[in-house]
Design a protein around this nucleic acid. Structure first.
Lengths: 244, 244
DNA sequence: TAAATAGTGTCTCTAAGACACTATCAT
DNA sequence: ATGATAGTGTCTTAGAGACACTATTTA
C-alpha cells in the first residue's frame, strides 16, 4: 500500500479524519460544597430526553476548540457564577450504552466550592440545586451519574487526609472549628477538637493565622486562619479508620 | 420547536447522532515492570505517520462495541502475551491539537506487570521494547506521551505507600528482599532492610508466608511470601520524605 | 450564671528510625 | 574464613489519642 515514502506533511494532507467513527465527548462536573455542615453536590433537573425529569450532573459536550477541563470550567462558572474553585479530573466513563443517544465518553471533573454559592439553572436546565450526598438514594439520577458522584465523594474523602483541599470549602478567614467541621461532614464522624487543632498546626503550610479574632456562638473570641501555601500535607491529617 | 411532547422512545427514534462532531477515542497504556532493579515502561517504535520513528505508548483506537478499559486490556495482552496484570485508569488527555490528524481524546491506563515479560511488536509496530524510565530523556517520545508516563510514574510511586501494588511487580513466591527492591527501584532510594521487614509484616494482609525458603546470593536460606488479600495497607509503608 | 466554644497541658502508648547483633550459606 | 544476605533485639524520639483543665463571651 505505502509504496511511496510520504513526509509527515504529505501524510496529513491526505489524511481523512472521517475514516474513524467518532464518539461524543462530554465534561461532567461533580461540584461539592458544604451547606449546613452537610456535603452537597450540584445537580440539574433534566428538561429534555433522555432521562427527562431525572437529576443529573452539570456538564455538556466539549466544544471542538476547547479541552474537557476548559469545558468543565466554563460550564461550572455558568452554572454557579463562581469564577474560582478547585477543579481536578476525576475519571472518564465510556462504557458503550451509557448514553442511549450515541457513544459518549464523559470526562468527569471534581470541583470544590466554598459554601453559599447560588445555583442558577441555565437555558438547558429547568432547575439547579445543591443536594446532600446522603440523600441521593431518594433521587432518580440520570446515566451512570450515581456512580460518578460516589467516586467523587470517595476521592475527596481520601484527599482530605494528605492534601490541603479542605480549605477550598471555606472562605478566608475561617476558624479552626469551621475547618474541623469540613472534615467531620465529609468523614461523617466527630473529631477531637484539641487534637485536630494540634495536627492542623503541625502540618507545615496548611493554614496561616489571619491575625484576627471572631466571636462565634457563645464562646470566647477565636483565632482565624487563611489557607497556607501547602498543597500536600505533612504530616497528614489521618482519618482514624482503625479506632477501637 | 418542541411543540409536541415526545416519549423517550420517540425522541431517540428521531435523534441524529451525526449532529455532534465526534472525536477519536483511544486507549493508551503506561505498562510498568521491573527489569534488573530498574523501573521500565513499554514503548512502541512508530512505523507510520505522525511521529514516524518516535517511541510511543502502546494503545490504539477504542472499538465501537468496547469500553476503553477493554481496549487497553486487549492491546496490552496482544503486546505482551500476558493475561493477568494490574490495570487502572490514569487519566484522560484531550487537549485540542495533541494529535495532528484529528481531535483525539486518549484515556490513559496504568498497568503493572511482573518482571521478564516478553515484548513482541504487533502488526502496527516495528518494535516494542522496555525502556528504563530514567533514560527517557534520550528518547523522542510521540504526542504528549512523556507527560503521560511522568503522571503514571508519579501515581505508582504514591500508591506504593498505601496500597499493596508492589506485589504486582513480582511473581509469587518472593522474598522480602525482592519486595524491598521494588520500593527501592521506584522510589530511587535505599531502605532500611530490618525496618522495612517489620513495616511490611505489620501491614495486615499485605503478604502471607509462602511456607518455603530459598537460597539467595551467598546468604542464608530466606523465607518467601505471597501477596495477601489486602488492597489498601494499614499502616502504610511511608516514604520517608522528611528525613533529616 | 450557665452553656458553649476555643485553646493548653500532659499522660500513655504505639510506631518509626537507627544501630548492634546473630544466623546461615555461597564462594 | 569471608562476605553477603536475612532476620531479631532494643533504644530513642515523635506523634496520636485521650482526658482534664482554663479562658472567654453570649444567651
Amino acid at each position: 500500500m505505502d509504496e511511496v515514502e510520504l513526509s509527515e506533511a504529505e501524510f496529513l494532507a491526505g489524511y481523512d479524519p472521517g475514516a474513524y467513527p467518532g464518539v461524543g465527548l462530554t465534561a461532567d462536573i461533580v461540584a461539592l460544597t458544604l451547606i449546613d455542615a452537610e456535603l452537597c453536590v450540584l445537580l440539574i433537573k433534566r428538561g429534555g430526553h433522555p432521562f427527562k425529569g431525572c437529576w443529573a450532573l452539570p456538564g455538556g459536550f466539549v466544544n471542538v476548540d476547547e479541552s474537557s477541563v476548559q469545558a468543565a470550567t466554563r460550564e461550572l462558572a455558568e452554572e454557579t457564577g463562581v469564577e474560582l474553585f478547585h477543579l481536578e479530573q476525576l475519571g472518564t466513563y465510556d462504557t458503550p450504552g451509557r448514553d442511549p443517544r450515541m457513544r459518549v465518553a464523559s470526562v468527569a471533573y471534581l470541583a470544590v466550592l466554598p459554601e453559599a454559592v447560588g445555583a442558577t439553572g441555565d437555558d438547558d436546565a429547568v432547575a439547579a440545586e445543591w443536594w446532600p450526598v446522603g440523600e441521593l438514594d431518594e433521587l432518580e439520577l440520570a446515566f451512570d451519574h450515581a456512580r460518578i458522584i460516589a467516586d467523587g465523594v470517595e476521592r475527596i474523602s481520601a484527599k482530605l487526609e494528605y492534601t490541603a483541599l479542605a480549605t477550598s470549602f471555606l472562605r478566608a478567614p475561617f476558624t479552626m472549628g469551621e475547618l474541623r467541621r469540613v472534615y467531620e461532614a465529609i468523614w461523617v464522624r466527630t473529631l477531637h477538637a484539641a487534637n485536630f487543632r494540634r495536627k492542623v498546626l503541625s502540618a507545615a503550610g496548611f493554614v496561616v493565622p489571619a491575625g484576627q479574632t471572631r466571636s462565634v456562638g457563645r464562646g470566647a473570641r477565636v483565632e482565624t486562619f487563611c489557607a497556607g501555601a501547602a498543597v500536600v500535607l505533612y504530616p497528614p491529617i489521618v482519618r482514624e479508620v482503625h479506632q477501637s
